[in-house]
Design a protein around this nucleic acid. Structure first.
Lengths: 168, 168
DNA sequence: AAAATATGTCAATATGGCTGACGTAAATTT
DNA sequence: AAATTTACGTCAGCCATATTGACATATTTT
């Protein structure tokens, strides 16, 4: 029997429940946390006329001065065409400098300029505060849990690479 | 004295170090975790001709059948114009249904159709597996740490709302 | 000399954000 | 009853960021 007899073919009223599917809680927490986590740098980038893509590039170039384009692409998981535009803007505006590799001159190694370092620090600042505030409310085992959880969310095939990049 | 005398005005070779700034580890883990976390649904959405924006809408409509447009906007933190396009496509393709609010007929309450529920579950599946696999490697206090960490990353002003949405 | 590699670039396309302005129906307030 | 506010939609245009595919160049490797 139709439980909505006479009403009109009905859509579903029953919610997907986080009680029945406990993973949903973590799925949505990742969404909400990430949504707010990027909001501070997003706002700061506006005044430079840059976007999130610039943020990611400026961050990883500062973290790994002399990084190769190919390695940056492997971190960001985007195409070289996508990177190309953003990188060119950062070079043109003096935040990133390119230098040929000293041994392999095909490479264009990427370095931050002084301005690029300053921008990276400015974007880093609010995120550091946010993380610091969160960590200060957690016990050491809870902090370890947060770190281990995030590492385990990363693709298994990428975990070693990530560990290399951020340290053990 | 210029430490690069005679070379040419130099960019910075010194990396931003995660040892000196321990928050960087968490910042980058959030980036890498989120990057991979959304990759499975992204791939599945391709076969429907949908993108990430559709995913978010279909997810929250399934989680909260009968949700108002305004409340969905408040969750997603996007403009009604941005939502409008995506929502229209989901309605036109039969994944979401709109009904006038029974008490306030200005409202257009959003419900998933059977197809919409099926799509939500299909997109949920790989993320549930990923979370489940991660949680199964963690002790209860570590799991609690992961959850508390993510809640604390959310804007303070949003935490109560998030707690309402996902449960305490 | 040939092949592979690292990178860049041109062109076209799609997605998903944004702002601003305007419209309509329904509820609420005066 | 009239005026105002609210909930929502829509039109138009703009911008950022991603994609694929093809081709170019310099350099290194075989």
């Amino acid at each position: 029997m139709n439980r909505d007899a006479g009403v009109r073919k009905s859509p579903l009223a029953e919610p997907l429940s986080a009680e029945e599917r406990p993973e949903i809680r973590y799925i949505e927490l990742l969404f909400f946390a990430y949504r707010d986590f990027i909001s501070d740098p997003d706002a700061a980038l506006l005044s430079y006329g840059f976007g999130r893509a610039h943020h990611r590039v400026i961050h990883f170039v500062n973290r790994h001065p002399g990084i190769r384009v190919a390695d940056l692409l492997d971190i960001l998981k985007i195409t070289k065409q996508s990177l190309g535009r953003v990188l060119k803007q950062l070079v043109d505006t003096g935040f990133v400098e390119q230098r040929p590799g000293p041994v392999d001159r095909r490479q264009r190694l990427l370095y931050p300029t002084e301005a690029g370092r300053a921008l990276a620090l400015r974007l880093l600042d609010p995120q550091e505060r946010r993380i610091e505030a969160a960590l200060s409310s957690l016990s050491p085992p809870e902090r370890a849990g947060a770190e281990r959880f995030l590492r385990l969310i990363v693709d298994e095939s990428e975990r070693d690479k990530v560990a290399q990049l951020i340290g053990r």
